[in-house]
Amino acid sequence: MELTVDTLEGGIKCVRLAGRMDLKGTQSIEARFNAETGALKQSVIVEMAGVGFIASIGIRLLLANIKQLNPAGAKIVFCRPQKMVEDVLRLSGLDSVAEIAADEAEAVKLLKGV
């Protein structure tokens, strides 16, 4: 999997993921994803347009970081997930502890709580 980090307008951090978030893919980005999201205790957009598949191990990684951020008053907003990935995020109930945005503009709004 690929992980890149962007800074959007207003200094908002955006972590972009691409590839298959199966066991192998998730393990390949796990340490960096933790370091760029949960460990920083700052709200972050996770852009997932390039993720074609997510397995339970990928859900676990996302949840572990949401779990670190939420008590610190920070959050993850998932942005542009493909239909199948969005279905799995909602099926797993992640939409009850994080938000899902259709595009970056919406993600920024949700992150700012506008």
Partner: peptide
Amino acid sequence: SPGLVVGTM
């Protein structure tokens, strides 16, 4: 029905 995976939060 809505519901988060069990054991995470």
